[in-house]
């Protein structure tokens, strides 16, 4: 017997990518640039946002976003509230996390080889800065007011880390908004990151409706 996906393999939520010139694509691009500028300031090197990809994806794709579900990752989890409530999750591969920790601590590349307390603290601070810059830019564009929490870091396999976001997404639907972008520094380091922004009401949130 062929393995069966139940109740039917034909049920599939929407999967599409927002064009870069679309309102959502443009808003995310502006927000990504704000994050890159902030990252440049704290790392002391010019950083630009590149390869932006904004997509609506089925929930089943969540645990493989940016890599394999059993890859070890560092995830920074923040919540926001205000006009909309929701969550932001920043996900780095371990290699990216080491690179970012070096940047944050003004250390030569390759210095960080394990996530000690200092490195995790630096990464958490990066999440604070990146998350708040992203959300501030996005809130300005969509004319909403949002407050953001301090981040919590977790180190685990990708699928498990993203289950936190999966539970929030699943409560409102079967699709999620994924924002993937690379932060490239002038010395060639690529601090690629997966950023998930999940308003509690999903695509029906105030900020998404204002971009529609």
């Amino acid at each position: 017997m062929v393995p069966r996906l139940l109740p039917s393999e034909s049920i599939s939520p929407p999967r599409f990518t927002f064009a870069s010139e679309s309102p959502v694509g443009q808003a995310m691009s502006v927000a990504g640039d704000a994050v890159a500028a902030a990252l440049g300031e704290i790392s002391g090197a010019a950083v630009r946002a590149d390869n932006l990809n904004v997509s609506m994806l089925p929930l089943t794709d969540l645990t493989t976003l940016g890599g394999l579900p059993e890859d070890e990752v560092v995830a920074l989890f923040l919540t926001f509230n205000g006009t909309d409530d929701g969550q932001i999750m920043l996900v780095y591969s371990m290699e990216q996390a080491f690179m970012l920790a070096d940047q944050m601590l003004w250390q030569p590349p390759g210095t960080t080889t394990e996530l000690d307390e200092m490195a995790l603290s630096a990464l958490t601070e990066s999440g604070n800065i990146l998350g708040s810059h992203f959300l501030t830019a996005f809130a300005d564009i969509t004319n909403v007011e949002l407050d953001i929490s301090t981040p919590e870091a977790l180190v685990d396999i990708r699928g498990a880390a993203l289950s936190v976001t999966a539970a929030a997404v699943a409560h409102y639907g079967d699709s999620f908004l994924s924002i993937q972008l690379d932060f490239v520094s002038e010395d060639g380091l690529n601090l690629g990151a997966t950023l998930l922004v999940v308003p509690d009401e999903g695509m029906q949130s105030t900020m998404m409706r204002r971009l529609a």
Binding site: P3, L5, L6, T60, S163
Partner: peptide, 21 residues
């Protein structure tokens, strides 16, 4: 996530990767 799969093929292995919550 949110899937249910069934099989009786002894050559299969059903895998739920990355269970967190």
């Amino acid at each position: 996530l949110g899937e249910l799969k069934q099989t009786d093929n002894p050559k299969d292995v059903l895998v739920a990767y990355g269970l967190g919550s």
